[in-house]
Computed example of a mutant assay.
Amino acid sequence: MGDLDGRTHAIPRCFRLRGSLIAMRRDSSIAVRRRQGEIPGRISDRQGYPQDHLQTGLDSMTPRFALYAAPATDHPLHEIAARWLGWDPETGAEYPAQPAAGLDAGRIAALTAEPRRYGFHGTLKPPFFLAEDCDEGQLILALEKFATTRKPLRFALKPAALGSFLALRPATPSAELDALAADCIRDFDRFRAPPSEQELARRRAAGLSERQEQYLRDWGYPYVLDEFRMHFTLTGRIRDEAERGQVLAHLTELTAPALRSEFTLDEICLFVQGDPGAKFRVAGRYRLGG
Rank of each mutant, 00 (worst) to 15 (best):
G122N: 02
R64W: 11
R26Y: 00
Q138R: 15
G48P: 03
S60R: 15
I140N: 09
S44T: 05
G19D: 08
P127Y: 05
E144Y: 06
L54C: 03
L77Y: 09
F15I: 01
Q47P: 00
H75M: 03
A142E: 14
M61I: 13
L58T: 10
F65P: 02
Y95H: 05
I22L: 15
D135T: 01
R117V: 08
H53D: 09
D27F: 01
E114G: 03
I39Q: 08
Q51V: 06
R34E: 10
L111R: 09
A113R: 15
M61L: 15
Q47R: 06
A109K: 12
E38T: 00
P127E: 05
R16A: 04
A23E: 14
I39C: 03
C14R: 15
T62V: 11
I80E: 09
A72Q: 13
E132Y: 09
C134R: 15
T149G: 07
P127H: 11
L139I: 07
Q55C: 01
D52A: 09
T91N: 07
R42H: 04
I43S: 03
E38P: 00
P127R: 08
H78E: 03
L77P: 02
S20Q: 12
D27Y: 01
A110L: 12
A70L: 10
A101R: 12
E79P: 00
E132D: 06
A66C: 02
D45M: 02
R116G: 01
A31R: 15
I30H: 00
A105N: 09
A100I: 14
